[in-house]
Design a protein around this nucleic acid. Sequence first.
RNA 1: UGGGACAUAGCUCAGUUGGUUAGAGUGCUACCUUGACAUGGUAGAGGUCGGCGGUUCAAAUCCGCCUGUCCCAACCA
Length: 900
Amino acid sequence: MKMSDRYSPGEVEQKLYERWEKNGYFSEDDKNDKYFSIVLPPPNITGSLHLGHALNHTIQDSLIRWKKMNGYRAVWLPGTDHAGIATQMQVEKALAKQKKTRQMIGREKFLEQVWEWKHKYGNQIVHQMKRLGSACDWNRHLFTLDDVSVKAVKKVFVHLYKKGWIYKGTRLVNWSPALSSAISDLEVEHKEVSSSLWYIRYYLEDKKNYLVIATTRPETLLADQALAVHPEDERYKEYHGKKVHLPLVNKLIPIITDSYVDKGFGTGALKITPAHDFNDYEIGKKHGLENFNILNIDGRLNENAGNYTGLKVAEARKKVVQDLEDQKLLEKIESYKHQVGFCSRSGSVVEPYLSEQWFVKMDQLAENGLKKVLQKETEFIPEYWLKTFEHWMNNIQDWCISRQLWWGHRIPCWTCSDCGEVTVCEEAVEKCNSCSSKNIKQDEDVLDTWFSSALWPMSTLGWPDKTVNQDNYPTSVLVTAPDILFFWVARMIMMSLEFQSQVPFRHVYLHGVVRDAQGRKMSKTLGNGEDPIDLIEEYGADALRLFLLDEHRMGQDIRFSRENLKTCRNFMNKIWNSARFVHQNFKMDLKKPQNDELSIMDQWILQKLQKTEKEVSKELHDYKFSSACTKLYRFAWLEFCDWYLEWVRSVLYGKVISENTEDNYTVWKAGEKPLENTEKLSVSYYVLCYTLNRLLRLLHPFIPFITEEIYQTWPIKDKESIMLDTYPGEDGHFLHSKTSKETQVEFIRDIVVAIRTLRGENNIKPSAQIDVELYLEDVKDLEKITQTIKGSISNIFFLEKLNSLKIVDQINPKPSAIMNLSPDVKIIIPLEGLVDLASEKKRLEKQIKKCEENLNKLQNQITSFSEKVPERVRKDKKDQAESLRNSLKSLHSSLERFNK
RNA sequence: UGGGACAUAGCUCAGUUGGUUAGAGUGCUACCUUGACAUGGUAGAGGUCGGCGGUUCAAAUCCGCCUGUCCCAACCA
């Protein structure tokens, strides 16, 4: 098998995804009896994949793949949302290009066109999800206007209506003039705006005195019904019960008193506009004022506005201010910053508007929902979201669910034009229940898109056609960004409790937002977005996934960084090439070695592997994707590739080393002949394959494509796909040896690193073959150390280009580079003839300085110890100090040799 | 205004119940194209752990206050 020296994701991703899907790996494996399920937050059919989706989907996909490998009957249920407003706007925009409006073509025709649009463009995001590798069970894809969803919506609506929890009422609602529709509180985005505070004179009936009020919306005075002052406000006591002239309008309005008024703000007098302000509405109700409406559904002033009829709000404001000025009714204008509500869908300024709408009564639903969540039936991760959730549930408002749109679930309510009877019913109504008249009409409005979304966990599992599979319900975890905690998560919880008598999911994992490199939110207006598909094409899906997971610390936002994405791409190449190494260099048969055949380095990597497996499993259980990925990344690169694989290379390419005794010292010398140690090689090859195989499986949930591609070519594999193999960590392990070889390996690594450091800092040519001495202070260590390094001599020679290695008990009197491995053991490289000696001197001086600093710090600590310090710590610190003192001593003596 | 989060190397972040010489990646510097990989390797420089105070023998870690950044929730016209 030939492998290219670069991993090319483009060549393998599509092919592998198609195979997975064709072979049915994404469906529930009914051989397993432990269930795990996730419902996908359904993306809008108008949407295209952005990095937020990519993060959201990668997390879910990793969980699903992990659980599948872990022996679960895991399924990820996908779907798409009809997205009432967004989709309707798309089609209306297209119509506008032909100079048409939806009203011109009529409801039926319009809906036909929306469906057409949906069939043409609505699946784009699904195709994009596949590029990312998402292991969704596409056979069970649900659209929120599919039959089941429609049935669920009707059933719920009728049930809640009969219970009295859905009602119709005329209320002041948030109105989007651009959409000509009501929107819910949650769809209003508050932004700070620089505006003005206009001070306006309201003359009293006698036209002599006047009151001044301050307002941010002067045009609403046309609908004023009263002025209000605080009953205790001394300044205005004489005016109680009097009337004032409403400026620009030939009308007298009363001065009322209400303790709502803040004496300290503005002038302490407040104009009351019940039909156009939420607070004024409440005050108006209390005082029996008329709800005088001056707005049309499109945000223009209506015929109640007299001269201003037909103007847009902003235009009316200008004209009103101008007219006030002309009539000398404007006291002053102050610049003022305040919060203004914007429609999150259309971006237009939201106007409070009086209209008849449908509402869901939320108090009881919220109480039940909060109770279960506080009982931990559903857990939020990270936990701090619980507080925010609790606050919202305790302050919940009734939910305005009707929208004046056409695309969506039409409200299942019919009114008889003859007798006025209202029928709310799941089936289409043909004639009036009460008078049998056929002259009946269905409510024109559709439901808020979130109404069907609220039923999502139930409808994806087939409800109400089927009862939900209790083994699969509650679903295991919901993964989402916190911005829709209330829109969606809270409502699903409430609805599920009402209709399934249990919460819809056990866990809610709330992840952060992907920001740009400067930490700003990615947005179309800023143009700082990154298209995940472009990134996949440039770096590969696996690289993007690993980037997102690795950067994603629990609950924290991610900063996009092309550099870090590149690093992830490089990681793929590293893994790819480690597999390539295996393929290129070994042809022998695999035989599982016995424990006593393993070299210390073999044992070391197996122990590191075992440790990594344990840790990764734990991190995944805790939703700590970043630590899991970071641990795997480090194991794979730093331990497996940088050390173990290099070590195996040295077994492969090492030379025969001869061992002699000269002047009572043991001396090893490099020979010419290649090592050809096939036995050793065979063992290492097995360990290499075994470790890489398990590493691939460990990595698969995060980077599915490359791991499968390599797995497919692997000499030892048990399954036809890595997806069907097991996840390492919770299964057995072939190495059971309990003896730790850790210290021995560390010792050998220390030798190698010491030689490298000395070479590096003294600028010894990398190609230079060098002689090295290993100094032992204490001869009784000789046997032990010889034993330890014996099996690794040829490796050390290969890795560090040694000419000879000599064990000595006297320090070479000539200038040498020296490094302490421990107080009693030093690595010495005689420098004569190799380099300029000044650099080693400089290095020694630096070391001495650092050593002295540390020793001082320690000394201070030790002298200030009180009796309370535990013996353990006391001894630790003493040992450290002792060790530092020894190092210092030998550093000084080394330096002296340079000064001679 | 209230609630929450965060503040550690130039940048992005680890640092578990207080006790390691405070770590990693990236960037930077130097050297190296050796037989998996230059999307690579080796080594090096770089931090009063936001500030002040407290608890303690000992604080990046626990407590209080302050400063700064961000998010959420809000009816102050």
